[in-house]
Design a protein around this nucleic acid. Structure first.
Lengths: 341, 341
DNA sequence: TTGTAAGCGTTATCAT
DNA sequence: ATGATAACGCTTACAA
């Protein structure tokens, strides 16, 4: 059996209360005493029992990340960013993979969370979904990542701007017939998808281009989906000369569809994505890059800041942090004139 | 304040002990009573306090995954597999990202784990590292994923066979000058790297080919590393006609290096990887596929099985589960005759 | 089958 | 600055 605080107290010749105070760095402890206690505890290799500490204090020292997927680039990268800051604060990181919001869903019910975590990080989930809304109303501090909701702190990019930047770039290099590959046909409450599409529409409008509903297709934010969408677009009587994919992974799929049809991305059909996926460079994909790892980091830091505040002080004004994106131009979009030469 | 077990007991007109037993499905409870307690508890929206339960029982209902990275395909995919089984068992999943074993390392010390988890899942970490060895000696049930160690349960592929299969395939399609891109120059105790290389050597030997030390290079299991390695190989007086990369991500890098040099993967230089990465299909990479998600799933299941056993019964015979791989041939390796035509 | 009550190992309040 | 001690909410012998 491992040593308890009582053993340490006895060995140091003080009370358990003093041990607790000394070890946690609380004030009103004689420096000498503190030093003594520390040494004794460390000599005994004493570790506080998390369960006991949590029960007595009511704090768990744990935060949960709730994301639809773990094994996709965006999400695992966010997770890594989150871990990097929680780690330095000795906070435990609990992971919940809830599945595709568009399909069956496994949002952990309140029961699964209550008393288990001090705060929640919700990644790229539609806050309109009732299950998600419930989470936000749990009374726990929450930060959203890669999505926004009124009255809830969040860290994300300006998705409208991202869509507009991407589309404008296609326009700039000479395209007029520009398709979009977005997520689902119907709006799902997942704001980035609709926002990026709005940016696309805005760019077209500002350029005086009309939006052809035929050129709207759906890639469900997967590579396979993007490939299917692009394949569909190529089957049209008047296929597009350029495509804006609302995510890099869908853009990858689009590129693959082009190759399968013997078309060269950039030369024959321009493709631009959003994300700055690790492999976008490898695939020579032009993309609007977002600092995904930082999203995770910043949200985690914001959440920790909330937690450190005395319950009463916790700001009721939710900060929606917007981080900048960068257009990275690669050969999947070359100016039309060059492409034709 | 949330209801406690006492509130439920009072409301149901039974003792707290009965509530506890009824709710946890323990035997020796009158079905009627159990039903009553369940209904009352659910009506009150009662949830047991995890901290209290853990303190009293000594079990945490939590397992930790310890991995060098989170944001790489292999690891996030394993994690997802693990989550899928833990989720259905209502076990909490704690994540520790420990960083590159070859660089600075952040293996959670015993202090960070003791009393916090019931078991450990260690992913692709060199069991020879003393920090890792310490973990294994913690007294907690452990399963390794994607690595093996004597006396420790593990789930992985046969890495020697994988290396041999990959290399043999290159030989079969007509190559004789076959390079390898492996991880680090020096063995690190990370078994898959050295094992895959042994498979490579074996295949060459069996084919009567001599192994040219010039054709051994290092990609550090990253895309960028693979690209550098391939670039180095191409600079040789007699560059290889084929490359075995010990991971798909390094193979991706190799492909990119080839493209940068105006060479066509498969046509000019054959490339084969190991992993079955999501995007290997996209990049037309021939690869030895391993069922990564299943690795996570199986290891999690094995670990749970251990946990369910009464402490005394826990088998001292460590199962090393080896799952089969599949060679998936794509156009990054086309027979030499065809390539030349 | 059910109830009683003694822990589980801390934290935090109140004295001293 | 330190010490006693009552919670914290549950589990689990042991009794009934």
């Amino acid at each position: 059996m491992a040593y308890t605080i009582r053993d340490v107290a006895a060995a140091a010749g003080v009370s358990t209360a003093t041990v607790s105070r000394a070890l946690r760095g609380l004030p009103h402890v004689n420096p000498q005493t503190r030093e003594l206690v520390r040494r004794v505890a460390s000599d005994m290799d004493y570790v506080v029992s998390p369960s006991a500490s949590r029960l007595a204090s009511g704090r768990t020292g744990t935060i949960a990340v709730i994301a639809p997927f773990i094994a996709r680039w965006f999400f695992s990268t966010v997770l890594s960013g989150v871990d990097s800051v929680l780690h330095t604060h000795d906070i435990d990181l609990l992971v919940f993979e809830v599945g595709d919001p568009a399909i069956a869903y496994r949002i952990p019910p309140e029961r699964r969370l209550r008393g288990r975590v001090d705060g929640l990080l919700v990644v790229a989930l539609p806050s309109e979904e009732s299950a998600v809304a419930n989470l936000l109303d749990l009374g726990l501090p929450v930060s959203l990542i890669g999505a926004t909701a009124a009255g809830v702190p969040s860290v994300s990019i300006d998705d409208v701007a991202a869509g507009q930047t991407a589309t404008q770039h296609l326009i700039n290099v000479g395209h007029q017939r520009i398709a979009i590959i977005t997520g689902q046909p119907k709006p799902t409450g997942f704001t980035p998808a609709t926002d990026r599409e709005r940016g696309y529409a805005t760019a077209l409008r500002k350029a005086g281009l009309t939006q052809d509903p035929q050129l709207r297709s759906f890639g469900y934010f997967t590579v396979a989906g993007g490939e299917q969408a692009m394949t569909g677009l190529l089957a049209h009587a008047q296929p597009p000369t350029a495509v804006f994919a609302a995510s890099d992974e869908m853009a990858f799929g689009a590129i693959r569809a082009l190759r399968r049809h013997g078309l060269r991305p950039g030369q024959d059909v321009a493709v631009v994505g959003v994300d700055g996926h690790d492999l976008s460079d490898l695939l020579d994909l032009t993309t609007v890059t977002q600092p995904v790892r930082d999203l995770g980091r910043m949200a985690a830091e914001a959440l920790l800041a909330q937690l450190q505040l005395p319950m009463a002080e916790r700001s009721r004004v939710a900060q929606a942090t917007v981080v900048p994106t960068t257009l990275v131009v690669r050969s999947s979009t070359v100016p039309v004139l060059l492409a034709e030469s």
